[in-house]
């Protein structure tokens, strides 16, 4: 990458519950994110794929300033953000929530929801606000009369459009999309994904697209980052990562997705469990589930290394075709 990355993250970490309570001693904290580094180019879409417990939501909340990181550095367009202040982050990076109904206050009208970032983040005068509100609604293809209605009057797909409009109202450079379509019906999912693609093209936005669905990740992203247990397992161009995974965990994910025309089989035994997040194992976190694991894997944590053209994997024994 020659230009300045839109977003650069260095060794970001988050540990929960390691602070000492008022009375008593600190316990070992839950290590939700264990040192994640990556960079996203302007206008790029990076998909972040992981299952529950992978730390993808914690990572996303740190990126928008809703959670202060325990350690690490976040840079947006070359400038470091060192305080966890959503108001400062808000003009640069915004968030679209998974559950459209839960992320809209049931007692505020759409107008008031969309107006807030205009007023507070941009100090926009009334006349300019009216103009901008109309633009926002048009951008997400909602009728103009939606402004004076309340969130419960909208279907899931429409509510998610309101959520997207609210994020766009802050006029950010980057959008973090946290499973933006997984609460929606299949036929509506595609509408929202296409809308997001149009907006990106028109406004030159950079996307971080969090999802558990590999097929969706591949359809919307340029590159994909697979998270396992709070750390990056693999990072690379979406199509290549899924077509020929290098990390055994990526392969397990790809093999598990139900696909039309593929016979059903359980790719691994039922005993497979995530490691204890309070006391992570010494070596590779995936070693306990990995068919290729050996003594080295159990003793030493593999670093994230270049394994090919623009491809990175954290594995001592990466798969090669």
């Amino acid at each position: 990458m020659t230009s300045i990355p839109a977003l650069k993250v260095e060794d970001l970490r988050k540990t929960f519950g390691d602070r000492a309570p008022l009375l008593g001693r600190a316990r070992a904290g839950v290590q939700a994110v264990r040192g994640v580094s990556f960079a996203v180019a302007p206008g790029e879409t990076l998909a972040i794929v992981g299952e529950s417990g992978s730390g993808k939501s914690t990572l996303a909340r740190m990126l928008v300033g809703l959670l202060p990181p325990t350690a690490g550095r976040i840079e947006i367009e070359g400038r470091a953000l060192d305080t966890a202040d959503p108001a400062r982050f808000g003009r640069l990076i915004q968030y679209v929530f998974q559950d459209p109904a839960g992320s809209l206050n049931p007692r505020r009208s759409v107008r008031r929801i969309l107006e807030t970032p205009l007023k507070l983040l941009h100090r926009m005068p009334r006349a300019a606000r009216e103009k901008r509100l109309a633009e926002l609604l048009a951008a997400v293809s909602l009728p103009a009369d939606a402004l004076d209605r309340y969130p419960h009057e909208f279907s899931g797909g429409q509510a998610q459009r309101i959520g997207i409009a609210r994020a766009l109202a802050a006029d950010p450079r980057i959008l973090v999309l946290d499973e933006p379509v997984s609460a929606l019906d299949v036929s509506v999912q595609a509408q929202v994904l296409n809308l997001l693609a149009d907006l990106q093209r028109r406004m030159g936005l950079t996307y971080l697209f969090i999802t558990h669905d590999l097929a969706v990740a591949e359809a919307v992203s340029d590159r994909v980052m697979v998270l396992y247990f709070g750390a990056v397992a693999e990072l690379g161009p979406a199509r290549e990562v899924f077509a020929s995974p290098a990390h055994p965990y990526t392969k397990l994910l790809a093999d598990s997705a139900p696909v039309v025309g593929r016979a059903l089989r359980a790719p691994e035994a039922a005993e497979a469990e995530l490691p204890d997040p309070r006391h992570p194992p010494a070596g590779c976190a995936f070693a306990g589930r990995c068919p290729r694991a050996d003594a080295l894997c159990r003793a030493q944590e593999p670093p994230l290394e270049e394994i090919g053209d623009d491809r990175l994997a954290a594995c001592h024994h990466p798969l090669r075709e």
Partner: peptide
């Protein structure tokens, strides 16, 4: 047909999805 087309399938790379217009 359109519902099946809405669901992205792995292996096809980045693309526009076929959406069904309107709402149920």
């Amino acid at each position: 047909r359109r519902l099946i087309a809405c669901v992205p399938e792995p292996g096809a790379g980045r693309r526009r999805l076929e959406a069904i217009p309107g709402l149920p």
